[in-house]
């Protein structure tokens, strides 16, 4: 437990700092108002709008834990959103709950199938994850465009719109969806042995195999989870815009999701992962986006800030920087430091 707290300390501190800075810069930031028994305000918007990224980042956490990466999540979102909206658009009764339920289920199943495909390429065929998912990342948007016939399908369906913008009691539905997803995934990983076995496979695949771990199924399950969660994210995104835009749905979300996972303290080298960390990471990304907006920076220029964040985060994780920190502490030369890695390997 002490270790866990330690792992999440810096991510949480970063998030809190960001929120405090936001609030100081603009006191309106933290204001929450109540209208018709429902909460509104920036914090609530963040909670609602983070749903797609949260779902995608959750799946990404599991995939990264297996030493993999899933670049296709954005494309899967585009496909699932296109599927859902096309089904609603084609149905004679777009406003009925039945239609919407069918559309959502089919869309999520499509996400699942695409996840199965990715997992197959990685765990059975043995293709590098970056490349295996690159295939779908390239082809997926093409498929989404074919589904929508190359146009931006807009629909009018109150029940469907409710998914992203509706409220349950006092908070947005979308918020409950991602909280439910976080709870389900956490239970699945930590109440069973899936989490530990996933970490084991991610840290040392060969040792895990020789210990009898069925790594193929575990790796595959991570990609399937990622596909399903991206499918749900696509449904929410489409419900938010009510337009199936195959080009912009989930655009760059894979990169933001990876960033959120890394911000949450999960290493890209695989192994130990933290779902709580990912939640913090996603919140940080969302809060950063809001902060940039508040600073009056056009959203298009936001990537510069994200670039800076990425660089800072990876530098903080870099062994050389740690070595510098230690060296500064002990006032020792840094000449021999770059080779500390080799030494650890041998000594282990």
């Amino acid at each position: 437990m002490r270790i866990l707290r330690h792992r999440l300390f810096w991510p949480a501190a970063a998030l809190v700092t960001l929120l405090v800075v936001n609030t100081i810069a603009n006191p309106n930031f933290a204001r929450i108002t109540i209208r018709d028994g429902q909460l509104y305000g920036n914090p609530i918007t963040i909670l609602r709008d983070s749903a797609p990224l949260m779902l995608v980042a959750l799946g990404m956490t599991l995939v990264i834990a297996t030493r993999g990466i899933d670049l296709s999540v954005g494309a899967i979102m585009a496909v699932s959103g296109a599927v859902a909206l096309t089904i609603i658009d084609d149905s004679p009764n777009p406003g009925s709950v039945g239609t919407v339920v069918v559309a959502v289920i089919v869309a999520v199943v499509v996400g699942l199938v695409l996840g199965v495909w990715n997992g197959f390429l990685v765990s059975v065929i043995g293709i590098q994850p970056i490349i295996a998912t690159l295939v779908l990342m390239l082809a997926g948007r093409g498929v989404a465009l074919l589904i929508t016939g190359g146009e931006i399908t807009t629909v009018n369906s109150a029940p469907y719109k409710f998914i992203a913008s509706g409220y349950l009691i006092i908070l947005p539905i979308a918020f409950f969806i991602w909280v439910a997803a976080v709870v389900v995934v956490s239970m699945l990983e930590r109440r069973t042995a899936l989490g530990m076995l996933t970490e084991s496979v991610g840290i040392n695949p060969e040792a895990s195999r020789l210990a009898g771990v069925r790594s193929r199924g575990i790796i595959w399950s991570a990609y399937i989870a990622s596909g399903v969660l991206a499918g749900i994210a696509g449904v929410i995104y489409a419900s938010n815009t009510m337009a199936a835009d195959a080009n912009s749905a989930g655009y760059l979300i894979e990169l933001y999701a990876i960033l959120a996972v890394v911000l949450g303290g999960t290493s890209l080298m695989g192994g130990k992962f933290s779902i709580a960390g990912t939640v913090i990471g996603v919140m940080t990304v969302q809060a950063l986006e809001k902060a940039i907006l508040f600073l009056g920076v056009p959203p298009a220029q936001a990537p510069v800030f994200f670039a800076v964040v990425v660089v800072v985060v990876v530098l903080l994780q870099a062994p050389r920087v740690h070595a510098w920190g230690r060296a500064a502490g002990r006032r020792m030369g840094v000449g021999a430091k770059p080779r500390t890695d080799d030494r650890k390997e041998v000594a282990a």
Binding site: A193, M196, S200, N204, A211, R214, G271
Partner: peptide, 18 residues
Amino acid sequence: GVVADLTVAENMILGIQA
């Protein structure tokens, strides 16, 4: 052999768990 980042206890039970 070892799964380096897992704890001693987790490494011990890995065989049973698998």
